[in-house]
Design a protein around this nucleic acid. Structure first.
Lengths: 153, 153
DNA sequence: TTTGTTGCAAAACGTTTGCAGCCTC
DNA sequence: GAGGCTGCAAACGTTTTGCAACAAA
């Protein structure tokens, strides 16, 4: 897995993708990519839309359009973490991680685990070519497990 | 993990759950459970609604209500496999399995893998109590990978 | 110049909710 | 009989779509 750090590199990957698929290199698309690059953590279309208003004004339709391109170009990952709306996160710059989802409050936390990662990566299929994966562990977070004890968290 | 086979046993589990949570034992709820018990594979609320019309007529609202109870009672598992709508499957009668999802055609296949299962089950958290998990592997199925070669599958 | 892309608003989609009547407890 | 559950339809929130204007190629 290549470690892609700078925005310049990410931008190049996106440009290559757009060129290859004969999509246009619009300022909106790069503005969105730039904003995502600077954003830490999970986000959804609405959050991104609100953030964008500060810098480069784009419509929700364009947000969705661009998110789809970014997912297809493997620059971001789309999650459906149980809620109605899709959540996204950068696919570059950070290590593979999994998600803990509290079935009571919906809170999402990330964690990494080498044995799990290795076990999954070791798996190969004759009739399937894996590109990426998502592991979601559901359960109760500390707050919902022990409601009597006030955790600051 | 206890192997629950017959509908009688499943029904008992559900009855226990309803009793414990002071929910009423309505004919609609049992009719839905019975239909799910007989159904093979993944389904969603709409599919279930259509199937139900053949035997016991219930409204979509009741379908959703009952699905939530069944999820809560751990008799079925809810998945968000990338699409807009939730998919469900029985949590009884079959082994733990994971999902292969084709990013091109959306086809879903199941597979089992002991090393992966053990690695995940070995993981414990101080501030999180795992109840269940979902592993989704995304990629290209044989049909979408080699479109020239006709696979019978 | 061509045609993909944009913004806007309306539509679509799965799911949830409000409410009157019903039925379990 | 009280109150949870049902069916129905309307409401909801996210995502998609239709269309005219725009701009990248």
């Amino acid at each position: 897995m290549k470690e892609e750090g700078s925005y310049i590199e990410i931008k190049e990957v996106f440009t290559e993708y757009l060129k290859k698929h004969q999509h246009r290199k619009t300022p909106e698309r790069y503005a969105i990519l730039e904003r995502i690059f600077a954003y830490e953590g999970h986000f959804n279309a609405d959050i991104l839309y609100n953030i964008m208003q500060e810098s480069y004004r784009v419509s929700l339709a364009t947000i969705y359009n661009t998110l789809e391109l970014l997912v297809d170009s493997k620059l971001i990952i789309k999650h459906q973490l149980g809620s109605q709306f899709a959540q996204y996160e950068k696919a570059f710059g950070s290590n593979t991680h999994h998600h803990l989802i509290c079935t009571n409050c919906g809170r999402v936390k990330e964690f990494s685990d080498k044995p799990i990662r290795l076990a999954i990566q070791a798996k190969t299929f004759v009739h399937f070519e894996m590109s990426h994966y998502s592991l979601y562990l559901y359960g109760l977070c500390s707050k919902c497990k022990e409601p009597k004890k006030k955790s600051i968290d």
